[in-house]
Design a protein around this nucleic acid. Structure first.
Lengths: 119, 119
DNA sequence: AAAATACACTACCATATGGTTGTGGATGAT
DNA sequence: ATCATCCACAACCATATGGTAGTGTATTTT
């Protein structure tokens, strides 16, 4: 990554299925590193690494509580992704509209064909 | 990437600023490889590589037309990203609501403090 | 105090990716 | 026919990342 490409860092963090699963897990409430390790059949070190990526992408915050580190999902970062995608909404809706038009035109052609068959 | 992690491939493709810029460019209409090379001060080979990633992520389709390759943005893939993010909408809205509550509570405290000051 | 738990840090390896350079193959223009 | 244009393919390098193994440290439990 060039220099502080925030959105890029976020997308990179979300490109891994383990990390997306972690995000899903954390969307249902905070969890300790240990808690995040259990469901994944991965080493604690690897989980810590993945968490580090999520933290770097500002998708997660980590706070010490005794000997545990509690991970919390940050809503803002995910909203950023949503906002990015939604900025193309007009594009894809136009595209789908055009597709609809094509479909409608094809149906008209069919109707015409039917009429021709009928006449 | 493990095996055919489609959403992961999409996120990975979008993690690069050059590729996101290409997506932005293509959202305003199809373009040739040459057309995509011009604005980016990158070698044609590199642009072709980037396009290959976008194609692999099904974000772009490429069709030969004479000696040119025309690249077209596919709306579906971007909608997939949007759908993923929106599936967490409830999470972040709840979070922001909680934040609102905290803010409101703090304001109430302030009011109480004011009263105490007043009495 | 001793043992167990939760986590971090380091070193190491294989692979994917960003990027360059060089080249070759079609297609279009002259 | 020749030359320029558009693009793909291959080799190469540096770095980031996924993953493992080993160890150290602080906190809890006993």
């Amino acid at each position: 990554m060039v220099v502080d490409d925030r959105l890029g860092t976020t997308f990179a963090a979300l490109s891994d299925p383990t990390r997306r699963a972690m995000v899903e897990r954390l969307s249902r409430g905070p969890a300790s590193v240990h808690g995040l390790t259990e469901p994944f059949a991965l080493s604690q070190q690897m989980i810590s690494k993945h968490i580090a990526y999520l933290v770097r992408a500002r998708l997660v915050t980590k706070t010490k509580r005794g000997r545990e580190s509690i991970c919390t999902l940050r809503p803002q970062a995910i909203k950023t992704v949503s906002d990015w995608a939604i900025s193309y909404r007009q594009f894809w809706e136009e595209s789908f509209d055009k597709l609809d038009e094509v479909v409608k035109r094809m149906k008209k052609e069919e109707v015409r064909d039917d009429k021709q068959h009928g006449e």
